[in-house]
């Protein structure tokens, strides 16, 4: 379900957006599939991609932008190499999610929704990952992790950073 495919290039590429648009050419109401694929390809849907999608689907840029902004999983700028989402819904809150969120923002030095200066981690909040039995829940890229406390969180971060540095940065 995540649109963030870590390690994908986040450089804007007209050719790659064009290829996605061509692939969906025969579909009716293809806006969402197109946006999913662009984000999958490029890691984000920036203003230039919005303009191309709007032009191709004969929509206004505002309309495409409105859809992109409606879904938290679509992003206008590239994420860090990894995305960590902390669930702040009711069940997780009752099991310490707020403290976990505080720890996360303090230890990473970023706010919710921001990316660390080294580009390794983007920290986000979600409201329910459907993992309430194992609250508080966190999702690291595509992987769901339950019962996360500060220590476990730090370990997840360390692993994500190692992975990031093991791969060439785009």
């Amino acid at each position: 379900m995540s649109e963030v495919a870590p390690g994908t290039s986040s450089e804007f590429s007209e050719e790659r957006v064009r290829a996605v648009l061509d692939a969906h050419r025969s579909e009716r109401g293809g806006l969402l599939p197109v946006l999913h694929d662009i984000q999958g390809e490029l890691g984000c849907i920036d203003e230039r991609a919005v303009a191309m999608v709007a032009c191709d689907l004969n929509l206004s840029q505002a309309e495409v932008f409105g859809v992109v902004s409606f879904y938290p999983d679509f992003r206008a700028s590239p994420s860090g190499a990894s995305v960590i989402r902390i669930c702040r819904a009711e069940a997780c809150q009752s099991m310490g999610a707020e403290a976990l969120a505080r720890h996360a923002t303090e230890s990473l030095g970023v706010g919710l929704g921001d990316t660390t200066a080294d580009g390794s981690i983007t920290l986000e909040q979600v409201f329910c990952l459907g993992n309430c039995a194992l609250s508080p829940a966190v999702m690291v890229n595509e992987k769901l992790v339950g019962r996360v406390d500060s220590e476990r969180f730090d370990a997840l971060v360390a692993r994500a950073r190692a992975r990031a540095s093991g791969e060439p940065q785009p």
């Binding site: 929509l59 505002a62 309309e63 932008f65 409105g66 902004s69 409606f70």
Partner: peptide, 10 residues
């Protein structure tokens, strides 16, 4: 008929 405006976010 210009569609220049939208509601962003939710």
């Amino acid at each position: 008929g210009t569609f220049a405006l939208t509601i962003t976010g939710r």
